[in-house]
């Protein structure tokens, strides 16, 4: 699960103008023709660095994203929910594995990425720094956060890097289950008893603003992305993904008689665009930089898992083991 444009800081990489102009032209022509870039192809330094950062953050978002819903894994109500939530959270771990692998093909080993996550050097999607107070929060995440991630991932699967596209295609297929499962849970709560309905409404009220943050700052505030769009690293802008998601899901929330805590929210029929209250981007920055309600807990859980698992990994690591960059 991952939204867009979470990164503010500039990336350190060779300026594309300093790259070999012939190689760069061939590279760009390949992308222009709609062909994928494969790991052993020549690529500009900036392309590699951007992709590593993006795929790595996406992978971190999956592994950390397993935690808010995981809050309810031992408490899911009934067999069907229990089995589904176990499978759903497992998928998030599986997606992290797929994405770390895709990033590894660019030359950064998985352990190095996990170290960067734990040390706080590398970021993950902001939304997972919020707590899941009730079962309905977990339903919200399964349905609407995953829906946001799918909008983003379907777009990115059309991107230019072969291994990332392949991982995303697989992920999108698996996530269609998450979306349906999450919607199913929300439908049951929204059409259920007054207490269930209330629980669902409160979850929406809590998660609405983090969800608006999920897609990243508005395009007018974002760092320059022309090169990334041209290289098909980024396919849709933050505003485009946010608009797509609003268009697909706000009507479905309203259909269930639930309300959304933004009285400005409406679709402008003339422009075809959704209008909404601008979310607080200062809060977004604060949370990304570590000051959210659950940042410390999320990293502490990940650290604990790494620490408790270390003896296992050490015991199975042969002395002569030799790590090489995976193929694809």
């Amino acid at each position: 699960m991952y939204g867009g444009g979470n990164t503010f800081e500039k990336i350190k990489a060779k300026d594309p103008n300093e790259e070999d102009p012939i190689l760069l032209a061939e590279f760009e022509a390949r992308i222009e023709r709609g062909e994928k870039i494969e790991p052993t192809d020549w690529m500009p330094d900036l392309y590699r660095a951007q992709l590593i950062r993006m795929i790595e953050q996406h992978a971190h978002s999956e592994i950390i994203g397993a935690l808010p819903e995981g809050t309810w894994i031992t408490r899911a109500p009934g067999f069907k929910r229990k089995l589904a939530l176990m499978a759903k959270v497992q998928d998030e771990v599986g997606h992290a594995q797929l994405l770390y692998s895709a990033a590894e093909t660019l030359g950064k080993p998985r352990e190095a990425m996990i170290d960067d996550l734990i040390s706080g050097k590398s970021k993950y999607s902001n939304i997972f720094n919020y707590p899941a107070f009730t079962w309905a929060d977990s339903a919200f995440i399964s349905w609407l956060v995953d829906a946001g991630a799918i909008v983003n991932q379907v777009a990115n699967s059309r991107g230019s890097y072969g291994p990332y596209s392949r991982a995303l295609e697989r992920i999108c297929i698996e996530e269609s289950f998450h979306l349906k499962f999450g919607h199913h849970c929300v439908i049951h709560l929204a059409t259920g008893t007054p207490a269930q309905r209330k629980m669902m409404q409160e979850a929406i009220n809590r998660w609405w603003h983090p969800m608006m943050h999920f897609f990243g700052p508005p395009d007018k505030m974002s760092v320059h992305t022309d090169t990334l769009m041209k290289w098909k690293v980024k396919i849709l802008t933050n505003d485009e993904t946010r608009q797509q998601w609003l268009d697909m899901y706000v009507p479905k929330v309203w259909e269930l008689g639930l309300t959304i805590p933004d009285n400005k929210l409406r679709k402008n029929e003339e422009t075809g665009k959704w209008e909404y209250t601008e979310p607080d981007w200062e809060e977004f920055k604060r949370v990304i930089n570590g000051d959210g309600p659950c940042n410390k807990e999320r990293l502490a859980v990940r650290k604990t898992a790494e620490e408790r698992g270390r003896w296992v990994r050490k015991a199975i690591l042969a002395k002569d083991a030799h790590y090489v960059t995976p193929l694809a």
Partner: peptide
């Protein structure tokens, strides 16, 4: 199955996390 599901998302290795989670699902199933 319930006990083993407690490991989901905090296993010692991503691959093992996934395998153990599947077996927990098999048990609950």
């Amino acid at each position: 199955g319930h006990r083993n599901s407690e490991w989901i998302g905090q296993g010692p290795l991503l691959e093992e996390d996934i395998a153990f989670a599947s077996m927990a699902q098999d048990k609950v199933g």
